[in-house]
């Protein structure tokens, strides 16, 4: 494990996948613990992890922007029009 909080540069190559999983929340148990413990002692990995967490949070938040009303209405009409194309006979 790295113990250099002040090191600069890219994150440790072997940690990148695990840090990605930790940032998105899919790392569990000892894998998550190891990633966090590593990041606590390794400057580049800590910055990488924090940056990923922030970026993923921003991306997830962008989902909450609603559809403009007019767009929603047009899309609903499209769905109804498409449904009308489904034949009656099975």
């Amino acid at each position: 494990m790295f113990h250099n909080k002040n090191r600069t540069g890219p994150p440790c190559k072997h940690m990148e996948k695990l840090l990605n999983k930790t940032a998105e929340g899919s790392a569990r148990g000892i894998a998550r613990w190891y990633a966090l413990a590593h990041a606590a002692r390794c400057g580049p990995c800590r910055r990488f992890l924090n940056a990923l967490i922030e970026m993923i949070a921003r991306l997830r938040a962008s989902k909450n922007e609603g559809l403009p009303d007019e767009t929603a209405q047009r899309l609903k009409s499209s769905a109804a029009a498409a449904a009308a194309n489904i034949p009656f006979d099975d």
């Binding site: 899309l75 769905a79 009308a84 009656f88 006979d89 099975d90």
Partner: peptide
Amino acid sequence: AGANRKLEFEQTALGELPVLY
């Protein structure tokens, strides 16, 4: 029979419209 299928399709599609867009 086809009426139910149309309804099912429309309900499924309506629920996924924001994601699809």
